[in-house]
């Protein structure tokens, strides 16, 4: 009988097929989502009945922002340019894209005349640090603990954890973080109430500074890790219970493969695959959650910047943050999607 499906023979032709079947659709999706998101951002202010410039000014006044007449004129000029109100909608639309490509989101009103991208740059490291560490921890911890809880679903600790997750999971970011703040910062006073560091501290690379920053980030980070972890825990537990029933797990058990190997290489490793896709799909929500949590703890990242923009009616800043976020999140999703084949050989070859 001839050797069928010679593996070496098949691998050769698959690189191109992989690019065609996996890579290109994702790149197309990436650019289309950005295109769609930015287009939405462009049209949203134009869908309201009144002139967006006047509308924005009204909003700022309604928020009680004081502006002297000189500033006001500059803002009107900037707004008119930003919205590119000269010319047809199509001209305006292209002008809008042109500015975005130069990384120019216009000028902030509430910290006039600082440019929006400067403000974003200042806030970004805080958000990035918080977001990356908490997402890493919640994903890793949630999946490992959830995986074990799914494999040992009959154990009592697994049931206890499941109940905890059932209680935490449905709470929106705001309510959960707010509850943590009330409990741990006001009632028992273990952690600082707000901010990213002690007021008046200057940024330096001293141990004192790092310690202070870390100390202030404990509560927001804890909130994000617990809430995000609970979601990961529950989905992972469920996936593991399904994977557990798969033939290859049963077969390994019948083969007397040691339990530690089965749990790690057979159950959890396979259950992680949908969790990677799941992470990509939920990055938008995780990001929004981080912004909301920052607002609760007045953590000096993009969330708090957004909050300040909202209460001062700084539409440019909100738009800048939104546009930036669309780019950041879709890019992050693309990166996750591109690493997926590393974990799943079925996508790599075939």
């Amino acid at each position: 009988m001839p050797a069928q499906g010679d593996p070496v023979g098949r691998k050769e032709g698959s690189a191109l097929a992989f690019v065609k079947r996996y890579l290109i659709p994702r790149l197309i999706q990436y650019f289309l989502v950005i295109f769609l998101g930015i287009t939405a951002v462009f049209f949203i202010p134009r869908m309201t009945p009144n002139d967006p410039v006047q509308r924005t000014l009204q909003e700022m006044k309604a928020r009680g922002s004081y502006l002297d007449p000189g500033t006001m004129d500059e803002i009107i000029a900037d707004l008119t340019e930003m919205y590119g109100l000269g010319g047809s909608w199509l001209d305006q639309y292209f002008a809008f894209w042109g500015r975005l490509f130069q990384g120019d989101f216009g000028v902030s009103f509430f910290q006039f005349p600082t440019r929006v991208n400067v403000l974003i740059n200042i806030a970004l490291p805080w958000t990035l640090g918080l977001l990356l560490t908490t997402t890493f921890f919640s994903w890793t911890l949630g999946n490992i603990i959830g995986g074990l809880a799914g494999y040992y679903a009959r154990r009592s600790w697994s049931r206890v954890l499941d109940t905890v997750a059932m209680i935490v999971r449905p709470l929106p970011y705001y309510i959960f973080s707010f509850g943590m703040l009330l409990l741990l910062a006001y009632v028992v006073r273990w952690f600082p109430v707000s901010g990213g560091m002690e007021i008046g501290r200057t940024v330096s690379f001293s141990w004192e500074f790092i310690k202070d920053v870390l100390w202030h980030s404990v509560l927001p980070a804890l909130s994000l890790v617990i809430l995000g972890g609970a979601v990961m825990f529950q989905t992972m537990k469920l996936i593991v219970q399904n994977v557990n029933a798969e033939n290859f797990v049963q077969y390994a058990k019948l083969g007397g493969v040691t339990e530690s190997r089965i749990v790690g290489k057979y159950v959890i490793r396979n259950a992680l695959l949908p969790q990677i896709t799941g992470l990509a799909l939920s990055l938008g929500q995780i990001f929004s959650g981080a912004l909301i949590t920052e607002i609760v703890f007045s953590y000096p990242g993009l969330g708090t910047l957004l909050y300040n923009a909202i209460i001062t009616g700084d539409y440019n800043l909100i738009m800048g943050i939104t546009v930036f976020s669309i780019f950041a999140i879709t890019t992050a999703i693309l990166i996750v999607d591109l690493t997926y084949p590393l974990f799943d050989p079925r996508v790599r070859y075939n």
Partner: peptide, 24 residues
């Protein structure tokens, strides 16, 4: 499905903020 996926992926919260600012 592409439209739907885009809604899932885009930071909806921020879009909602923008919209609610304008229709407040």
């Amino acid at each position: 499905m592409f439209l739907g996926d885009s809604l899932l992926v885009i930071p909806l919260f921020l879009i909602m903020v923008m919209l609610s600012m304008l229709v407040r």
